[in-house]
Design a protein around this nucleic acid. Structure first.
Lengths: 362, 362
DNA sequence: CTGTTAGCGCGTTCAT
DNA sequence: ATGAACGCGCTAACAG
C-alpha cells in the first residue's frame, strides 16, 4: 500500500492537474505546459484542443506554487513597513512612496507582500521573513538604522534595498540627504534673523513619547531619518530646543509644540522646524490655540512637500517626490533581483519657501 | 548525460539544501526536516548536530516555496484594494479596516499579498489573481458589485470573503446596512425640520467626475456602498438633490458641495448628507468659503465616525468600528480557509449626533 | 526516536 | 512540433 491517496481516493475530489488536461487533450504534459505559458511553438489546433480540455475539466491554469518552485522564483517582493498597517499608511508621504513602488513592482511583474514591523515585536517580523516566499525585500520607509532582519534575508540569498535604512553595506539605498536638507532649512530661518529656534522631531525610537530630547538622544536615535534631520538643525542652530513627537500625526505635533510654545513670550522660539509637514500642521494649530500668529510671531517649517488643502497656509518645506522615490526603489530591487549589481543612489530634495516663514521680529 | 546541472556544476555556486545539511550531520533527510519544523520528536543531541551542520553550510532554513508546494498551502492571503495604493489608503476608515485585517492574518498565520485594482485596468488584477500564490482572497473595501474576479478565484478553488462586495452567493460578507443607516441619518435631519436636503455621494462608478446624479445613476451605481447610502437618503428624502464626488478626498467633497451650495440662498439645501466623514469635511469647508455657517445655516453629516482632530466640529455621523470590521473579515477568511462553512454576517453601525446638525431655520 | 519511500505539480532538457 | 524522462526542495506516511 504505497500512497495514502489511494485510501482517500474515493472520498476526496481529486484535484485536476496539468497532466489530466494533457491526457484529456491527447497530448503530452510538456505540450500542455507550453500552451499555458505561451513560451514554445505549438500548433494552433493542438493549443485549442488543450484549452478545450482545460475548460471541460474546469482547470484554472498552472498551480502558482508548483510553477514557482520549478522556476525558482516566488514572483513576490516583500515590503516592510514600520508600525501597524494603519499607522504606516497614515503619513501621506509614505503612501505616495508605496504607490510609486507598487507601480514598479507591477511592471516586473511581482506581487507585493506587505509585512509590518509591529513595535515591540521584532520577532514576528523575523519569523515572517524567514518563511515568506519572496524574491526580494524592500524597506521603503525609514526604519531602524540597524536591523537583525538583514542578516536573515542575506542568509537566504535574497536582495534587499532600502530608503536610508537599514544601514548596511549589503543594502543599496535610495538616499536622501536628510541632514543637509534640514540644515539648509534651518539656515533659511537664521537668514531671516531667527535666533531662538525650536525643533519637533519624528519619533527617534520605537514607542517614543512626547519629550524633550538631548543631543545624546538625537545621536542615539534608532530611526535614521529623524536623526539626520535633527542633526541638520543642530548643525546650524546648536542651541535649538528639541522636542520629540510621539507619532507622525497632527495631534502629536500639537502636543510636542506646546512643550515649545507654552512659555513666557520672550523665552519662546520665534521659529519651529518640524520634521514632517503633518507635524508642522500640528505646530501651526497649537500656535493658533495659544494665540500665536503664523508667520508674524512664529515661523514654522515642514518636510516632505505634501499637498495639504485644508491647511490655511502654504507651508515652507523640503519637497521630495514620494512617488518618484517609490519608483526608484522599485527599479533598484528589480535590477538587484535580475542579478545586476546595484549601488546606492542619491535622491534629490528641494527647499520650497511658502507663507509660514517670515523675518524674525526684533 | 542526464541532468544539466552536471554541466554547470563547476560554474554555479550550487545552492545548499536540506539534503546537504542532513548529509553533513549524518542524519536522514526527514530527521533534518523535523528539526526545522519542530513537528516531530527528535533527540536533542541530534537536533544540535543538524543545527550545527546548517550553520556551517550557512543554510538559512527550508525553502518556503518547496515547503508550500509540499504542504499545499501558500501561507498567503490576497487582499484586493480599489484604486491605486496611495488612493486606497487615503481614507482613514479604509486604513483601520486594513489594520484589523492585518492583525487577524498575522494570527493565522498568513502573509498579506496586496493587490490593487487600478481603475480602467481590470485585466491586470485578473492576471495577478490568476498567478498569485494564495490560500484565500479578501475584498475588504467596497468594490464593484459584480466582479469577474470571483469566477476566476472560485475556479481555482480558493475561498473569498468581502465587505459588501462583490455581491455573489459564493462570497460570504461582513455586511453593513448602508441603506438603513443612511436612511436613519436622513430621518434625523427631517426630524430637525429640514426639507431641502442635499446629498454628496462617494464615486458611484470607477473614474467618476463631480456631477449631479439622477435616481437612475444611483440605481446603476457600480459601487455597492455608495449606492446603498444614496438609496437610503432617497428613501427618506426622495427630492434630495444628489451630487457625486470624484474621489474620497476632502477636495472632492468641496467641489461637490459647491454644486449644491453655490446657489440662491432660498433654493439652497439646509442640510447635506455626505457619504463619508472626509467628504463632509469638504462640505463644511466649502460652506465656510461661501460664508454659510455650520450648523446655523447648514447641517452637515458624515459617515464612518473618523477621528478628525483638525476639524473644528464634532461631526454628526454614522459610526462603524473599522478595526473590528477588519478583524471580522480576517476571522471569516480564516474559517473559510480551514474548510469550515461560513456565511455572511451583519456588522453594526451607530448614529452619533455631534455639533454639525441643528434644527432648520424657518 | 530515526531512516526509507513516495510523491506535491510543474518546467525543461533531450531525442524524435 | 511533440513526447519521455527527470528533478526543483521539501514533507507525510510509514517501517524499523
Amino acid at each position: 500500500m504505497p500512497a495514502a491517496r489511494d485510501v482517500s481516493g474515493a472520498a476526496r475530489p481529486k484535484r485536476v492537474t496539468l497532466r489530466d488536461v494533457a491526457a484529456r487533450a491527447g497530448v503530452s504534459l510538456s505540450t500542455a505546459s507550453l500552451v499555458f505559458s505561451g513560451r514554445g511553438p505549438v500548433a494552433a489546433s493542438t493549443a485549442d484542443r488543450v484549452r478545450a480540455a482545460a475548460e471541460q475539466l474546469s482547470y484554472a491554469g498552472p498551480d502558482p506554487l508548483a510553477s514557482s518552485l520549478r522556476q525558482g522564483r516566488a514572483g513576490t517582493v516583500a515590503v516592510v513597513v514600520e508600525g501597524r498597517l494603519g499607522d504606516a499608511f497614515a503619513d501621506p508621504f509614505a503612501r505616495s512612496v508605496m504607490d510609486g513602488l507598487a507601480g514598479e513592482l507591477d511592471a516586473i511583474p511581482a506581487g507585493m507582500l506587505l509585512l509590518a514591523r509591529v513595535p515591540g515585536d521584532d520577532a514576528r517580523l523575523l519569523g515572517q521573513l524567514a518563511v515568506a516566499a519572496c524574491d526580494g525585500v524592500v524597506f521603503p520607509l525609514s526604519g531602524p538604522r540597524t536591523d537583525p532582519a538583514v542578516d536573515l534575508i542575506v542568509g537566504r540569498g535574497i536582495p534587499i534595498v532600502g530608503a536610508g535604512s537599514p544601514v548596511d553595506p549589503r543594502v543599496p539605498q535610495i538616499r536622501v540627504d536628510e541632514r543637509g536638507a534640514s540644515a539648509a532649512m534651518t539656515r533659511h530661518l537664521t537668514t531671516l534673523g531667527h535666533r531662538n529656534i525650536g525643533h519637533v522631531t519624528m519619533p527617534l525610537t520605537p514607542g517614543a513619547m512626547t519629550s524633550v530630547a538631548t543631543a545624546a538622544d538625537v545621536a542615539d536615535a534608532v530611526y535614521g531619518d529623524a536623526r539626520g534631520r535633527a542633526l541638520g538643525v543642530l548643525d546650524v542652530a546648536p542651541a535649538a530646543r528639541v522636542v520629540q513627537a510621539a507619532s507622525l500625526e497632527i495631534a502629536a505635533g500639537m502636543t510636542a509644540a506646546r512643550l515649545l510654545l507654552d512659555t513666557a513670550p520672550d523665552a519662546r522660539p520665534t521659529a519651529v522646524v518640524a520634521q514632517s509637514d503633518l507635524l508642522a500642521a500640528g505646530v501651526i494649530r497649537a500656535a493658533g490655540e495659544l494665540g500665536i500668529r503664523v508667520p508674524e510671531d512664529l515661523s514654522v517649517t515642514g518636510f516632505d512637500g505634501l499637498d495639504l488643502p485644508w491647511l490655511d497656509y502654504d507651508l515652507t518645506t523640503v519637497v521630495q517626490d514620494g512617488r518618484a522615490k517609490g519608483r526608484a526603489l522599485g527599479e533598484l530591487i528589480a535590477r538587484a533581483m535580475a542579478g545586476q549589481s546595484v549601488s546606492s543612489q542619491a535622491f534629490p530634495t528641494q527647499l520650497r519657501v511658502g507663507t509660514t516663514t517670515a523675518v524674525a521680529r526684533p
